[in-house]
Design a protein around this nucleic acid. Sequence first.
RNA 1: GCCGAUGUGGUGGAAUGGUAGACACAACGGACUUAAAAUCCGUUGGCCUUUGGGCCGUGCGGGUUCAAGUCCCGCCGUCGGUACCA
Length: 853
Amino acid sequence: MMSQRRKQFPFDDFEPRWQQHWEENKTFSAPNPGDKGFDASKPKFYALDMFPYPSGSGLHVGHPEGYTATDIISRYKRMKGYNVLHPMGWDSFGLPAEQHAIKTGEHPRINTENNVNNFRRQLKSLGFAYDWDREVATTDPEYVKWTQWIFLQLYHSYVCEETGKARPVSELEEKGFSREVIDEKRLAFVADTPVNWSPDLGTVLANEEVEEWRSKGHTVERRPLRQWMLRITAFADRLIDDLDDLDWPEGIKNLQRNWIGRSEGAEVDFTIAGEKVTVFTTRPDTLFGATYMVLAPEHPLVDKIATPEQKEAVEEYRKVCASKSDLERTGLATEKTGVFTGGYAINPVNKEEIPVWIADYVMMGYGTGAIMAVPAHDERDMEFAEKFEIPIIEVVQAPEGNEDNCFCGHGTAINSGFLDGLSTADAKEKIIDWLEKSYLGKRTTNYKLRDWLFSRQRYWGEPFPIVWKDGLHYGIDESELPLLAPPLEDYKPTGKPEAILAKAKDWVELEDGSIRETNTMPQWAGSCWYYLRYCDARNSEAFISPEAEEYWLSGDGKAGGVDLYIGGTEHAVLHLLYARFWHKVLNDLGYLKTPEPFHKLVNQGLIMGEDGQKMSKSRGNVVNPDEVVDLYGADSLRLYEMFMGPLEQVKPWSMKGVEGVYRFLGRVWRLVYEADQEGNWKMREQLVDAKPDKATNKVVHATIKKVGEDIDSLSFNTAISQMMVCSNELGKLDKLPVSSVALLLQVLNPFAPHITEELYQVLQKEFKDLPEGDLASQDWPAYNEEYLIEDEIEIVVQVNGKVRDKLTVSKDASKEELEALALKSEKAQVFIEGNTVRKVIVVPGRLVNIVAN
RNA sequence: GCCGAUGUGGUGGAAUGGUAGACACAACGGACUUAAAAUCCGUUGGCCUUUGGGCCGUGCGGGUUCAAGUCCCGCCGUCGGUACCA
């Protein structure tokens, strides 16, 4: 219907024209230090979007939300005199392309390239000011080369225990450490661990990924496998502590803190039949209240401890646990279960014997897989103790008013021998000191974070630059990079936990008898460092040159060099944690100067369907950006996405809303143009080369001010409403000063670049005094404070806080004058009458409040 | 349970502790038109009204203040994340 109607302005004509203009003139190219046209005197601004996975279904309206925001900032910063780095690229490894290959037998690169081309076309149709010369795809051989190179840095590094920093393993070789010891210390290492194996995906998954794939209906089971791991745990403390220096949403910081899950406490050694069993606790001060011990069902000591009478029950219970999925085991409402082993442990602090149980509420994978249970002060232990009638001993006196059936907070130690009377904090210190002196335990910190399982058995990922010989692994020489996977006849997974690349015998088996590693890296590898590559995308000598790094990633007092990073929350713990980890390693090794990658992070809110539901194909509420561009133009789509509401908020789509901003752009168009009888666009006669009057100057300059401030604070919706106010005012004028229109076009340009450039060009032809060149190359206009000051202002007269009258007064009226005027107000008098005026509050320029009773 | 958001007209949303509802959408009325679309101009939180206005109103209950959507305390709802992590 809409396409049948006459367009309010010919966006389908000028939008592609301007896009072509920008492309041909390389308007938004950002030269590097040393390049032609580079101006070192300008400050830099790095605005980064989370690059998309180029899926087959193309862009959805969520993409342009964040992209438009960074685009507005980038265009604005350029006008403010910055060298702006605003790049785009493709996170193009991934499972869908591989599944397409499985179905068709076609190399996944072909499908990937098609999708990338479609994404690029769609993004270009929105007029984003990207420097397309810096475009990268993680699947480009040149990019793969450096991803593998960075892996080799990890492989050839270890973390020095004294400094906590990554260092080359060559230092260990020089010190004469054995190959075996060195291999155990590498940041990239091989381990036999229980991993998350998904038979239907044909690959293992990182802990961080398990939930996502499960929720998509795939099965994930645990099984022991030999895998490449990255030692992210060695960076746990820095990954937590350095969050403090970042300008990130508190929620995201908390998600990372929780994911890393640092908890400080103590390990305490108990003895069971002569065997030492260590437990981890964050509350060593409650040691006197431990009335039983629980081992994880998988705990290696269970066999030794279980008495003959209990052996059968224990075996039975372990079998049941093993068959349970993680979900069942950790499920919400599961009642506590467990079995007595028959064994007893000796509590080191009072030598008392406590029964040892096994129960699945204790996880083998965390702490030591064994706990001391203090039912009086732990809800889980309490529930368990009540069910199995185990004694409960209170050892912490809750502060008054906080008494609880199961008090888990801090209080005063009781029934605890030498700890009695101490605060929880002091008791912790004292008991840990005692344990350490008695060689019965030590202070420890535990983390939930596990090392990063880094290998995948898929085809469409970076092969590991590793060969095996005689059971030992070796990093291949840098000169052999990139190491690309050979094309296969058949991309189907084997169903066994064996990498698909193992099928390529000719590639795997080398002449010297060594064989290639057949695993590939996860998709995260490429996205861990793409923001670095953008800085120097065409460098074939290094992943980034020191000069480019120095300029674009200088933090200038900030922890991270990317000045603004906008993207969705879905990457809160995965990509953002991994990228920080790699960055820190490269920083330690001297390749980067900043400790963090992203200084300021903003999460755009999800765009819901028109029905308020999450957009999805099955609901049929997905909005296709191509359609919106077709009906209303790119400027309308950009403007609407910014006008919907605050960037970070979740908000529903509304086609009516798109029409609203489309009409606004139509009004801006008609400030300059009107249609004649034949329907041709002619310049409006009201446009004059005259000085604007006071009111016009006021609204225009107020707009310049507000739009600038609002862009700085990412409040794009209110910036747009101010521009609407401005254009509404200008539209009423019989004599419309062209300079005022030009200023509006200038501040609107970052939001709606096509229509504003088009109109400005038209004005330039008629009014020769306008500054030359296009809007993109002009400076952001300064506002004149004088125009904002009004001679007369309206102030409000309140009586007891309620508005009773409004007065128009001179802007210079003194407090005393205002008070006198307000007291004289007849409307206010009515409410004062009969009462005594107790107080008069005068807020100059705003109001007078008369307190009377 | 915990963590983080959030609650304002019919809707999306504005409001440095200082005139609640800017700007839009929808709706209604009018102009233009043979008609419609588009455009332009009005009205639009609720209740009462003698048409001057008045009263009520930002999830609920308290509090601080001359003044609270905004600050404090306690609840409730919604959304997102996360969870036997000892």
